[in-house]
Nucleic acid binder design. Sequence first.
DNA 1: AAACGGTATTATGAATTCAAAATCAAGACA
DNA 2: TGTCTTGATTTTGAATTCATAATACCGTTT
Lengths: 230, 230
Amino acid sequence: MEKIQHRNLYREVADRVRELIEQGVLTPGERISEKKLCEQFGVSRTPLREALKVMASEGLVELLPNRGARVTRLTVKKVRNTYDVMAALEGLSGELACRNISDEKVATIQRLHETMLDHYRKRDLQPYFRVNQQIHEHIIAAADNDVLEEMYNNLSQRVKRVRYSKKMTEDYWKRAVEDHEAMIEALQKRDGPMLGRILREHLCNKLEVASLEGMIEEEEDELPSRAVSS
Amino acid sequence: MEKIQHRNLYREVADRVRELIEQGVLTPGERISEKKLCEQFGVSRTPLREALKVMASEGLVELLPNRGARVTRLTVKKVRNTYDVMAALEGLSGELACRNISDEKVATIQRLHETMLDHYRKRDLQPYFRVNQQIHEHIIAAADNDVLEEMYNNLSQRVKRVRYSKKMTEDYWKRAVEDHEAMIEALQKRDGPMLGRILREHLCNKLEVASLEGMIEEEEDELPSRAVSS
DNA sequence: AAACGGTATTATGAATTCAAAATCAAGACA
DNA sequence: TGTCTTGATTTTGAATTCATAATACCGTTT
């Protein structure tokens, strides 16, 4: 009773490679050996190479002509740029969500909000983030815009690797929760512009970036060659 | 003295296919014959198939398992969704541009604006649109955000095919120009929130969508098969 | 010992080949 | 006549093969 095989192989392979990157098995800047991965996955190079090309267009790997693929190295600037765009998309999702969202869905989000508040009061950071993430995903889903969702998921995936250890100070956390209170209120009132503004400026995103400063190595752009500095 | 050949073949092929789609040689919903295109381009199926997979991830073609590729059919909903996201991205570009843009670049944009006004006074629609487009591109460039630019270009490409015949009524046109006046003013004052708001709500985008209603066939989702409904 | 040069090896890019699925074309049957 | 099989043909998906570029290895030279 294995999984049925009609999905294209290259998609399967791409998902596997994405996992490896996400889990840090393949580290940023690391050269990807086609041969090794092919053996590991038990497929030929054709689907792997197709997967790598797709992932390159997604920004997860870089292809160096005649020199293979490397996991894209995240820089602070790239992450900041990505979060800025994600914030804009979230803002749009807020505006759109207010147009059509049903009372039931608002209620669902409100319940998630209450749960999140619980975690906040107990200072359970991980559960807090998890529910927080869910709330944002629900709003994006409510926006009912495939393109928006697709773009957001793409960007989200690029920066997934840096989702560790956000430094959450009391003050920031308090303000983030206040933002969420205002979000719920705007959602209930179906105040699109307001919800949009809150989400665009929601400091959750900026926060992560801030905490990243100094966490990502900004150094060499090229492959470490034998002949390094004398 | 031909172009040197170190660019990957699949990229070359993808560009060619994109042109064919843009020019309407390959029509929406049309099935793409790998064999025919390979012969036309003089390449094997490998790079073509890689190109198609990348283009699928870009949303330009759809891959049906074991049934080949088709040019993505644009629906009114898809176009509307795309323009909504593009507007959000433009809004962000406005906010970001105001942070760093130099006086010289503002002046360049202002000159473009004057040119555009000329075209407006003469009611030269095509040149007006061209310069209009340039202004938006300049603002996006001034935002200095690779990710933003990448996303915008991707979306822009998807809807390039419908850039025909926008119904530009006098009233709409007048308001669009007013928007642009306000944009320049906001840019000069480096008023990011203002420029962002204008761009997000700039009716240029909505307008096109409106004019599309009824222009795109919304019908069948599947290939016309022999064995249709009983 | 370090630097250079040349060959062997390996990895990549692309074409070709092979297996399986889908499509097409007749022919059997109601 | 129209529908349903059945087999031939085409097309797709993936593995393999082949040519070329990059890398590693190793001896020579200074």
